[in-house]
Amino acid sequence: MKIGVVTFPGSLDDVDARRAVTLAGAEPVRLWHGDDHLGGVDAVVLPGGFSYGDYLRCGAIARFSPVMGAVVDAANDGLPVLGICNGFQILCESHLLPGALIRNDSRRFVCRDQRLRVDNASTVWTSDYSAGQEVVIVLKNGEGGYVADNATLDRLEGEGQIVARYLDTNPNGSMRDIAGVSNERGNVMGLMPHPEHAVDPLCGAGTDGLGFFTSVLGQLAAHH
């Protein structure tokens, strides 16, 4: 099983995402922002970082990179796509996911071990969790406040597209404590916390994040 990890100029957690893919038992494939194809991978991860410096809105430039054209087409055909942090922002800018991510309400960057609840364990990225499972995942962002209009938020709740929510303190002012959302089909997911930094108890917050990567492998294997 091959999982592509895109490197944009300014991507930072691409190496970590590739490591997580390996630990989950898949083969990581490096994808470059200038490529207009995905090299036949079975799923794609858009990693965290500051693509193109994020001097405009986060993800606003990455959205127009050649590789994102291929990602959008493949996602619409059902390819599993996970956007982490900056990747989540890019997915929103690309309109693969609804809503937007704005500056943290504290107006400060925040890095902490965050408790979350997995609300939907039936997406391709969360099937190895149980619904309502509480996990601890590293969170680190400056612009992680999830916003959408009320109608959209109600629809997301109704359709089970709110995949994960913050527990304890809401670290960035996200509406309805949203930490992650999926598209209607459930193959595209955006997550503000960093599961790739919760796969090795030695160098992160435990191993609770590994499930996102093993979930997609299980789902892909089941459909092969």
């Binding site: 190496v15 400060r108 960057f109 890095c111 680190k140 917050a205």
Partner: peptide, 9 residues
């Protein structure tokens, strides 16, 4: 907490 201590893994 304003510094990323985890990046590079």
């Amino acid at each position: 907490d304003q510094y990323d201590r985890y990046v590079q893994g």
